[in-house]
């Protein structure tokens, strides 16, 4: 795990130092900031040193828990990340949960009705869903939410951000509801994006499992179809899905960037874009590290789930 993080950070650091630009560009262009000060900042953060030395200095600080300073936000990187990580986790958890709750039953249902109308209509919708790029879908939904006006129960669907103005004046329930309303649009966009693929995989995996000899053997023992499906087929069919869960979840953490940017969801994706555009070195490195770390955590989680579901997998 750590060698991988090291490799990722090294490559990211190199690429970043090879790219044009300068984290202090804004300060340099500001006539109010004296050259002397800029040189002092450069010396303080080691920007005047050769790249390998800069990397080692950065690494030694990170190991001690210091992620550095964001020149764009003029705050410590850890604070900025901490603020954004929650929003991204919230979005990822919400849409992963929604995707799974919808896609897996739909896949199983389609498998059981293979070739009949439920399977066919779900297939068509799935292919449409897979073909629509998330940014387009996000724009479509933004437009729809703007045109639709207030809806019953939910009211007007917010078209951006995490909270409404005046959030601080709300009580706890009000705050939760406010965030939930903001979550709706990016969450649904991401769910639709992931739904189609997962439904196909869940359908395929269920079909494959149902054609296994132990399913025929279970039928031969006189077990009911529902028992066969839920007790014998489902857990086996879930195995490939669990593998996918790790990837899906971590891919959402980093890959939701398009949706985050279009719906101005203040998450890691949007933050990474802002950081790269201003060449905010320490912030870029932190988002990269965080992305890889979350990927690994996602995979670790799916491995643990695997071991829990399948006695052939042992945690060592």
């Amino acid at each position: 795990m750590f060698p991988m993080l090291l490799g990722v950070s090294l490559i990211a650091f190199l690429l970043l130092s090879l790219s044009p630009g300068d984290p202090l560009a804004a300060q340099r262009g500001n006539p109010q900031v004296p050259d002397e000060l800029i040189r002092r900042i450069e010396a303080q953060y080691g920007f005047d040193r050769p790249v390998p030395e800069q990397y080692v200095r950065w690494l030694s600080r990170v190991v001690r828990g210091d992620l550095g300073y964001s020149f764009k936000f003029k705050r410590p990187v850890a604070d900025v990340i901490g603020e954004r990580l929650g929003a991204t986790l919230l979005l990822a958890l919400f849409s992963t949960l929604l995707t799974w709750l919808l896609a897996v039953p739909l896949g199983v249902w389609a498998a059981l009705r293979r070739g009949q109308w439920p399977d066919k209509s779900i297939s068509v919708l799935s292919f449409v869903g897979m073909s629509l790029p998330s940014f387009f879908l996000a724009l479509l939904f933004l437009y729809a939410a703007t045109v639709a006006g207030p809806l019953p129960l939910i009211g007007r669907i917010p078209i951006g951000g995490l909270v409404s103005p005046g959030f601080d004046r709300l009580d706890l329930v009000g705050r939760v509801l406010d965030i939930a309303r903001h979550l709706l649009l990016p969450g649904v966009v991401l769910t639709i994006g992931g739904l189609a693929g997962l439904q196909r995989i869940s359908r395929g995996s269920t079909l494959e499992t149902l054609s296994q000899p132990y399913i025929l053997a279970a039928r031969a023992r006189g077990l009911s179809e529902s028992r066969i499906l839920w007790r014998h087929a489902f857990r086996n069919a879930a195995n490939p899905l669990i593998t996918l869960l790790g990837f899906e979840f971590s891919a959402l953490l980093s890959g939701a960037a398009f949706t985050e940017i279009i719906t101005s969801w203040p998450g890691m994706g949007l933050l990474a874009l802002e950081a790269v555009r201003s060449k905010d070195q320490f912030l870029v490195m932190a988002t990269v590290l965080m992305g890889s770390l979350l990927l690994m955590v996602g995979n670790l989680l799916s491995d643990l789930l695997h071991a829990w579901n399948d006695p052939r997998v042992k945690v060592s």
Binding site: Y214, A217, R231
Partner: peptide, 8 residues
Amino acid sequence: TALNPLLS
């Protein structure tokens, strides 16, 4: 292949 691999 006639036994469910996940059940004891």
